[in-house]
Design a protein around this nucleic acid. Structure first.
Lengths: 167, 167
DNA sequence: ACCCCATAGTTGAACCCTCAACGGTTCTCG
DNA sequence: CGAGAACCGTTGAGGGTTCAACTATGGGGT
């Protein structure tokens, strides 16, 4: 900052082109998936992801903290989100039996139904907008690229395990 | 919806893995770049992009609409953003001489200075978090993948031309 | 036991974005 | 020329996220 020499390694033309293409693509993709869910199922993408994770958890319930960590979300954000989902009737809170500080978020039957209704449209959108546009080699490359970048990101936003069917 | 048959083409295991890796990576990357800018330069990433575009425009000024279209942003969003940037002293509004409906957003000297101060840290972060983690082949592949996906997205979120130096 | 600190979760304010509605201007076309 | 349509930009409300407190409980270490 107080140094006049510019030792910044600027992006060359090719890198800039890739960077702009990538950032525009990921932003627009996110945007359109979010709008699709909001329009067809009245929920933002981040809430959909919460419901997905809960639907796969034992008893369809999970500690708030674990749920937050699993999606790289802050505790505060999750707390607000669950408050909203609770008000929609899709999730309810339950106190944790083993830790009086804790809360469990539990997916209700209505929540499960809402998720089941939302999933096909969402998956179809993901397929149409992403997978259908790429060759199998590109899909493979995208996976490897994503994992490589993910390993270099600061906190533990690592990939949480998710062996499930309708992410 | 009223159809009981499930003709949804669900994602197979490999696709799910790629999808989760990609969506996690792009979200976390965006998040960390945004935090870096907010922390070091007191501006969100989207505002940084506005300043970048303005800095390359003739007279460092541009019509609101053009500015919005260039970054796939809504008019409303841009209007709010420019209001904020104006209040920070980085942009000022000026009425358009040829169209009484129009406004020009003009980058001030303070705005240019703020951008110049923010750019090195931002570019360094992009390089460290993205390009340094990938091989040249992967960078090339990422560019092609991004463009292929972009071509399949609904509205005209196409890549606006940007032959510039510090995006 | 006790104190100290770490942890779980919540809250409220500030900020950014979206959506729908609006006033003002330009365009088009009969 | 004179509607009516299309366009430019703004506004305000509502919702989501962040950040910095704050409460309350749990877990050591002495």
């Amino acid at each position: 900052m107080g140094d006049m020499t510019d030792d910044t390694r600027w992006l060359d033309d090719g890198e800039q082109e890739v960077w702009r293409a990538f950032i525009t693509m990921s932003g627009a993709l996110n945007d359109q998936l979010d709008r699709q869910l909001q329009r067809d199922s009245e929920m933002p993408y981040t809430y959909y992801e919460i419901l997905v994770v809960l639907s796969h958890a034992p008893d369809r319930s999970m500690r708030m903290s674990e749920l937050a960590g699993l999606r790289g979300s802050s505790r505060s954000r999750l707390s607000h989100a669950v408050a909203r989902l609770e008000q929609a009737g899709w999730v309810r809170r339950q106190e944790c039996p083993t830790d009086k500080r804790g809360s469990l978020a539990v997916l209700t039957d209505e929540g499960f139904a809402a998720l089941a209704a939302a999933a096909p449209g969402h998956v179809t959108a993901v397929r149409e907008k992403l997978f259908d546009r790429l060759t199998p080699e590109q899909v493979k490359a995208l996976g490897e690229i994503s994992k490589a970048v993910l390993e270099g990101l600061d906190p533990d936003k690592q990939l949480p395990g998710c062996r499930e069917t309708d992410c």
